[in-house]
């Protein structure tokens, strides 16, 4: 009696012209991934963001891209790896990153396009000149002292004063002599409300292009240096028309460099610009309110959809007759505010 392996070989060779190696399971290629720390998303993308490849997070403003990227970074830094955040619009929030569990000592932050220093004054100081705080001199009365110690002292020197009052000098008529009393100068107190530094503003459009160019050059340098396990390229606040002008060759170069240095490059943008250079492309929908509390902002729910994923594992190399079960292409989860406890 023929063994099962012989039968399988016979069946396979009989079907070889239609289905090559029909009964042999396909070789599994294990591609390294780094989990994002968000369960539903990790499940959706089969483990996390790919290592040595480019991941694109596309979405409008307020779609949860930064929260997702920070969650990913917290997983990377927890493994004692070093990462970089290239911030093209200077909008990174270190406090939020720290709250998200990112080890800031392992995160290199590059702020691009910072050409002005604006010091915001949220506590204003209203200060008065020191003259206001000095007590007014005591008005000296006729007797040189206002309230005396005893009523009899009040008449002290009165006779001399009356004599002086009635002297020629005082009594002499002054005709139409102009009365020259010094006019009091009006005192104005200005509150110290003006900002301490004046900023030189450059046109917003020029600034944006400069920042994008700087970010791309910095990314090039960091990828070539190697050793950074994750590099976040944050174009989240840059308009689509600016990002779409970046050469496709740039993204291709990054992809090849990432493959060589085994870095995960994550691109945050409003427009899917990397095209085929990205191995994983996720589109995030605008965040929605969880409506849990009326007075306290507790969190927002996010929705993500996989737009593109390369190297997905096929369960079998046999093309089934019936339509195979489709994998879910989207996931939902909730971003909680840092001031809200576990629910």
């Amino acid at each position: 009696m023929a063994s099962s392996s012989t039968i399988r070989f016979q069946v396979e060779s009989a079907l070889a012209h239609r289905f090559p190696s029909a009964l042999t399971p396909p070789a599994r290629m294990v591609r390294p991934v780094v989990p994002t720390g968000i369960g539903p998303l990790d499940e959706l993308v089969q483990g996390g963001f790919p290592v040595g490849a480019m991941t694109e997070l596309v979405g409008d403003v307020c779609s949860g891209r930064m929260s997702l990227a920070l969650s990913f970074l917290s997983q990377v830094t927890a493994a004692e790896k070093v990462c970089a955040w290239i911030d093209a619009s200077n909008t990174f929030n270190p406090a939020a990153a720290s709250a998200a569990g990112v080890d800031l000592r392992r995160l290199l932050w590059v702020r691009c396009g910072v050409s002005e220093t604006v010091s915001e004054q949220e506590t204003r100081k209203f200060t008065l000149p020191p003259e206001c705080f000095t007590p007014k001199p005591v008005l000296k009365g006729l007797h040189g002292g206002g309230h005396g110690t005893h009523p009899r002292n009040e008449v002290k020197g009165l006779s001399a004063a009356v004599g002086k009052f009635l002297s020629d000098e005082t009594v002499r008529a002054r005709c139409a002599e102009p009365f020259s009393k010094p006019r009091p100068t009006p005192q104005t107190f200005e509150p110290n409300l003006r900002p301490s530094s004046t900023s030189v503003r450059t046109p917003r459009r020029g600034r944006t292009y400069d920042a994008v160019e700087q970010a791309l050059r910095c990314a090039d340098l960091l990828i070539q240096t190697g050793g950074f396990s994750a590099i976040i390229l944050d174009f989240g606040e840059i308009a689509s028309e600016v990002v779409s002008r970046i050469d496709l060759s740039t993204w291709h170069r990054y992809r090849v460099a990432a493959e060589q240095t085994q870095a995960s490059i994550v691109l945050l943008s409003q427009y899917a610009c990397a095209k085929s250079s990205s191995e994983l492309q996720l589109r995030l929908s605008p965040l929605e309110d969880t409506n849990e509390e009326r007075t306290v902002f507790t969190g927002l729910s996010a929705h993500v959809e996989v737009m593109r994923q390369r190297f997905t594992q096929t369960p079998s190399n046999v093309v089934p007759m019936r339509k195979p079960p489709q994998r879910a292409q989207d996931a939902r989860w909730t971003h909680r505010a840092s001031w809200v406890g576990p629910r």
Partner: peptide, 19 residues
């Protein structure tokens, strides 16, 4: 140095606008 443990829940992050 030892890194802090990664966050279990995904927190909501504020993107700061400067200025």
């Amino acid at each position: 140095a030892e890194p802090p443990s990664a966050a279990t829940a995904s927190p909501m992050c504020l993107r700061l606008l400067r200025p």
